[in-house]
Amino acid sequence: MDSQERAPHPYLLPKGEKERKKRFLFLCGARRGQVKFPLPWGEPACPPRFAVEAGRTDRGKGEGKRIFLGIFLLIFLLVFQPLPTYTSEVLPETETEVLVREHPKTGKPYISIVSVYDPEGGNLFKDSLKGGVRPDYRLLDRTTKPGEIPYEGPVSDRTKVYVLAASLATLGAVGSAVVPVAATTGSAAGGAGAYAAAGAAVSAGTVSTAWLKTRPDPEKDDYVLESSTAVVEEGEKTK
């Protein structure tokens, strides 16, 4: 043997000695490749990493990490539920579900109860045009001139053949233009007389319970709006 005997490999040390080295390295906080030399027992015959491996087991460290990550992931999924969920609440007993829709004109949300098998089947507004402008009933006033009150809603899209009839008339095709008029003669005078008693339309034997005839501004407006109700049957039937 040489005079300068190399220190034996830690793994080759007696068990007691090996265990002491592990504890020493652990207490020193030795990390892979960061062992400082010289060690008390001298320079090992093996690279430093073996010395570090002697004091610590990576396998155990990795398993602990994986367990921790698994628990963290489980808690995260349970609490935050990042997986896609249904936007409605399904009521299994009645085979219906609750949805929140928006009014097609106003955008105001409302609750709908729909069938699970055909959620869009009963949607009254799936083909409706979105948006709109609230009407101004001052347009109905007799004294309002055309164009005075702006109107941005739908208008009749049918063209009239008045122009055609007039053009034919000018060509001499007809003696006098047959122009359909939007009026009748000899009918009841305009105003409330046409439907003076909306209650008359109610089946006999009923009593009108509410009648509301309004003229929004009696001194100014010249059109009539009426509302009425007539109770047909009242009372709750019991089983």
Partner: peptide, 21 residues
């Protein structure tokens, strides 16, 4: 119950949007 609504106005067809309103 039965409910009804009535709107009676003059010169309706002479205005743009009259019958609609």
């Amino acid at each position: 119950f039965q409910a009804s609504g009535l709107s009676d106005a003059e010169k309706v067809f002479a205005k743009r949007g009259g019958p609609q309103v």
